[in-house]
Computed example of a mutant assay.
Amino acid sequence: MRIRHLTTLAGAVVLTCLLVQVHVLPVMAAADTDTSPVTAVGRLSGVNFDPNKGTLDGSPVDHLPDHIRLLDIQLPDDGAPQRADWSPDGKRLVFLDAPFGDLWEYDLATGASRNLTETSVLHKGVLRAHHLINGDVALCAVTERSADGPEGDRFRGELWVLQRPLGTRAPVRLGESCWEGIAVSKQPGSTRIAWNQSTIDFTKPNVIIEALVGKSKILTGRIVYRNGRPRIADRRIALDKRDVSLDTPAVEAQDFRSLPDGDADSDDELIFSAYFHKGGQAMGVNLDTGAVADHTSWSLFYEEAEGIDPSGRYLMVERDLAITLFPGLVDIWRLPLDGSGTFERMTTFNHYKGFGANNPVVSPDGTQMAFGLKVEGGAEGEGNGILLMDLSR
């Protein structure tokens, strides 16, 4: 471990130089009034390796192939459907209506939508939502917004569970902080989850220092029920950012994967993203041995792990064919988890000026993918509609 950390010291030095260089660039004088460090860095174009990116006029929604369709979801108050997740039976989606929003449910058969948190303590405060295999929903959410720096609240969430019947019971606080996304096992009988805890707030002026010396780790546990109320059991640290390298500012849990290792535990590998490590890597940590695997080790592009195939054969990845400190508008690619590192492009939304595709999740039967339409501007990961792709074609 120590040898590996020493060999990555040069990477940490390079990251420091890059971040300092970006921080002093005169980007703040741009016309855009958002002058946060993340937005400033995001304007750097880097070196682009996709000659077709941003070359088409119009919207990708107006030129969809036959195997992709936009869901007709109408929301009040200019709500925008985003961050979808499949129900265990594949008949419904839950989604948010804003980066800090309410949680909604969409019935694929009827097209009906209903608000699940409008009357709860989490009204307009849900950041992430993922179904447990039993039909309950694990949430990362906030109950109130900060007066000073409210955008940074996305890094200061808490874990909750919304129990069935959804929308009829008050959410239950689990007593754990959560940073960005959470992962939920889709294996039969498992209620294992993973969540992130970090000191890093990418909206703060001291983000350069925090990127180097701040804390970031991934924890796992199981949701168990005592007298009908959920709580976390078997809590443990699965990964620290230092287990990847010294030049990794933050790690984020994404999905669980089963491996043919012969034991009874079906949650063998935790897929995660390592931000800024070689551009941003889709990685995994073996939950039995602690061994870390880089599933895109050859690449310097931004490749963020997202939805996994239920059988564990492949991973959907947000990818930007550019070498830059922060990604631009991304598209969705499929990465087989066979060690080949061979990507298959699933969308070409960012060939249209100001558009991209994000947040892909694969249905429980592996035949469909729900994903988001991204329009330039707004928060990272924000969506402007949900689409379905038929993966059987």
Rank of each mutant, 00 (worst) to 15 (best):
R4D: 11
L18P: 11
L18A: 12
P26D: 10
T39H: 15
R43E: 10
R43T: 13
G54D: 08
D57E: 15
P60V: 06
P60D: 07
R69C: 03
D78L: 11
G79P: 11
A80Q: 15
W86Y: 13
W86Q: 08
W86R: 09
K91R: 12
D97I: 08
D97G: 06
A98P: 01
W104Q: 07
D107E: 06
L108E: 04
A112T: 10
A129V: 12
V137F: 03
L139E: 01
C140Q: 10
G149I: 04
G157Q: 00
G175T: 13
K186R: 13
Q187P: 09
Q187G: 06
G189V: 12
N196W: 02
D201R: 09
A211T: 08
A211W: 08
K215H: 13
G221L: 05
R226C: 00
R231M: 11
R231H: 12
R235W: 14
V244P: 06
S245A: 15
D265K: 07
D265F: 02
S266W: 02
D268T: 14
E269A: 08
Y275T: 05
G279I: 02
M283T: 09
A291G: 02
G307W: 04
E318S: 12
L321W: 09
P327K: 06
L329R: 13
V330M: 11
F349E: 01
G354D: 01
F355H: 13
N359K: 10
T367S: 14
A370I: 09
L373F: 05
G378H: 03
G381M: 01
G381F: 01
M389Q: 13
D390Y: 07
